[in-house]
Design a binder for these strands. Structure first.
Lengths: 210, 210
DNA sequence: CGCTTATGGATACTGATACTATCCATCACA
DNA sequence: TGTGATGGATAGTATCAGTATCCATAAGCG
């Protein structure tokens, strides 16, 4: 398959494919001569994955690169590979909250995690995000939402178990790691759009006459 | 309060505040003379909200503007105002999937919505996103995750009910609309980081020795 | 009153991101 | 043999989210 066919097969413009090649998101094709390379099914699948992450899940290209690198590093123990993938796909956000708000939020989140029996490394970026979010919610006067932290955690635990079960049925290790990545990222847009639909439909019903 | 104090109170640099004023995210201060304006508590709160949306939830500035406009338009029925806010905060994504994949996904999603008894307008952007996501998941060979759509919907319904209850306790209408916005957006980063933590802790446990 | 600093408002510049466009020397194939 | 595609390199573009600079005016201090 040459680049033009790859482009037609995936509906990604040739210059964009070249850009991904340059950036190292897509592995080089096999060169048969200095200016003739051939691409295979692997490239088609990789390209589709890239597009889903970039377009649908709006993951920055640089981050997609890290994620894909973690997928390709299959010379380490599985849990290590998955850990890396996980780190690569958790965005790090700037700190927003005030010192005090963050301190209070940290306590609350730590307690939640203990109560849940979760084992979380203290440097996990998701932990920082959670703390910042709780702090922001309090600062914005939404303390009641924060009161539902446990209820959120309940619901989240429920589908996380399911997801991990689903992913575990994958026969090969490569597929497993890839499923973790896809499941984590596209799962998020899935949940988010379901939530918006549910909100719309419940709230339309609830406030029909106000 | 002058702009410098506003800046100190919120830790937002003065040029950034000026930028938000220019862009119409932040209402103008009251002019006491041609180059002297005073800002109040309203500005502090608005600025904090803007920062939480922009920095924490990574909402584009242009979209934040729309969201805030929908909050300020309180001359329409409540459900209409909330609908507008909702539309403003649902991102529209480019179409990615192939024609066939989208057709199949549309059927599946429509059935899900019927089964759930949700009332959803056919043009809701979240609906399009959901369809694209399901199509992408299938294309990427993650059909088993798609099989859990109902389980996801269950979990999502659960916390949506909670959220709407929480928000309904707000006495004034302005606060209610604002809570809907904050709850929807920051709720999402809350859920997402909880999910990542849960995944990490469950998966670390599950794959410890592989 | 004078002097330094801050302010409001306008305009220009910057750095990052994600592509697009152009060139050119091959190369495939009709 | 010539027309179009290809690989690789380099340059250009659009958008976004601020930053920086200017300037005339105003406030606060001694």
């Amino acid at each position: 398959m040459r680049i033009g066919e790859l482009s037609r097969a995936t509906e990604v413009p040739v210059p964009t494919i070249k850009y991904y090649l340059r950036e190292g998101l897509l592995p080089q094709g096999e060169l048969s001569s200095p200016n003739q390379a051939s691409y295979g099914d692997r490239h088609v699948r990789r390209l589709r994955l890239i597009r889903a992450l970039v377009e649908l899940a709006q993951v920055p290209v640089a981050q997609v690169k890290e994620i894909l690198e973690s997928l390709d590093a299959d010379d380490v123990p599985l849990h290590e590979q998955i850990g890396r993938a996980h780190r690569a796909l958790t965005p790090t956000r700037k700190q927003t909250a005030s010192e005090e708000a963050r301190a209070a939020a940290t306590t609350q989140v730590t307690e939640l995690i203990t109560r849940r029996g979760w084992s979380v490394e203290p440097e996990a970026p998701a932990l920082a995000t959670l703390i910042e979010t709780v702090a922001a919610l309090r600062t914005l006067g939404q303390d009641d939402l924060v009161g539902f932290l446990d209820a959120y955690a309940d619901a989240v635990e429920r589908f996380t178990e399911l997801e991990i079960d689903a992913v575990t049925t994958n026969p090969t290790r490569d597929q497993l790691a890839e499923s973790v990545v896809i499941g984590t990222i596209l799962g998020e847009t899935l949940i988010s759009s379901l939530r918006l639909l549910a909100q719309e439909s419940i709230s339309a019903h609830r406030w029909k006459n106000r």
